[in-house]
């Protein structure tokens, strides 16, 4: 499946509160196995092709760690 949206997570600012995991309807996100500098296991993108760009994760993230971008048409065809 083509990747239509790019979800960027600032893993160093993430405090692993888990709010985005709860509100993502597509289960795009998961928890990293590596700790960040603050000692949290940050959230990372596990299934980028499932993202529908609803933006609920970014809307709910209390630390503004999540950014979502539309992947331009030609790039998404190549990938």
């Amino acid at each position: 499946m083509k990747k239509r949206f790019e979800v960027l997570i600032n893993g160093e600012h993430c405090k692993a509160c888990g709010v985005c995991l709860e509100f993502c309807p597509q289960d795009v996100l998961g928890v990293s196995e590596q700790r960040n500098k603050a000692g949290f296991y940050p959230v990372e993108v596990k299934k980028p092709e499932e993202c529908t760009g609803c933006g609920h994760c970014a809307l709910m993230c209390p630390d503004a760690c999540i950014e979502i971008y539309r992947v331009p048409m030609e790039e998404s065809v190549q990938s």
Binding site: F5, E6, N10, G53, G55, A58, L59, A64, I66, E67, I68, Y69, R70, V71, P72
Partner: peptide, 10 residues
């Protein structure tokens, strides 16, 4: 990415 492609940015 350009601003126009952003669905959500900081």
């Amino acid at each position: 990415h350009t601003e126009a492609e952003a669905l959500y940015h900081r």
